[in-house]
Amino acid sequence: MSNLPSSQTAVPQTHPLVKGEVGPGCAKTDPIVIADSVTRQFGGLKAVDVAHLEIPRGKITALIGPNGAGKTTMFNLLTGFDKPNTGTWEFDGKSLAGVPAFKVARAGMVRTFQLTKSLGRLSVLQNMLLGATGQRGEGLFSSLVKPLWRKQEEENTARADDLLARFKLDAKREDYAASLSGGQRKLLEMARALMSNPELIMLDEPMAGVNPALTQSLLGHIKNLKDDGTSVLFVEHDMHMVMHISDWVIVMAEGRVVAEGPPETVMKDPAVIDAYLGAHHDEDLGDLMEDGPNPVLEAERKAREAHPEIEAEHEAAGYAEPVTPASREEEQR
């Protein structure tokens, strides 16, 4: 936990995005989100414990880390879907701590979900239109008078069609969202989030479960977002993709920010290699079973030594020898 090796390399590094020295929690020249001492505890587990975090404006920032590192929890906290135990954060200079999720979205910080939330029994177009903000027809009384919102609805529809065409979903316009494939739903969710012209779009594992061909087009869309001036923060497991499109990488492990930096250097950071890939990252796990220290087999061996009677029982019950990689291979043959 706290004894994770520091990510500081011998020579202090600098980067144009960073004010001062590069390192976990470093200050950015132009941050869009600044978070301070954000913690979230689930029982005895501190899922998020971030002392300071800044996300650069107008860039693509990747948030990576092993499973259970607190990435999604951090997303939920920043977007108001979860309440932190402590902490403050501001978005574009406005404090958003304790602000409900819908107001966070209205402020221009829109998120997608790891498990896609397409609205199945609404058409693709309806899904898109739901993303538009400031709709007059969404008021209870104004909704009854169509002339009040017809024009705005037409404008929103035109925008939605435009986005659907960009995301190659225009052929599916009238279909129910539930009839889309998993990858198309991811596209729809991203396109829907863009309907509100967000300042910052937060994508929670946009590539999970998407086939490689679609991944390429998703990557293109994310890059286009940056070109349009939108800041992007995304959680991802696919390292190649992270290397490929992100300008900045923030690494979380066990709730903390353990390293950050540009993708080329952050991957070489020993803290990242340890935290993210584990100490055995350059070994095949299969090899580990055969030769290296294997805790499971070790425990089995110790148990046999301590309780020889078990073995006798096993033999009596007709069990084979304890399973070893060698015997397993034999079985497979």
């Binding site: 879907f81 819908f102 998120r111 939330k117 609205l119």
Partner: peptide, 11 residues
């Protein structure tokens, strides 16, 4: 369909 999705869209 999904109230969290609608919430995330600012409603």
């Amino acid at each position: 369909e999904d109230e969290d999705a609608v919430r995330s869209l600012g409603k």
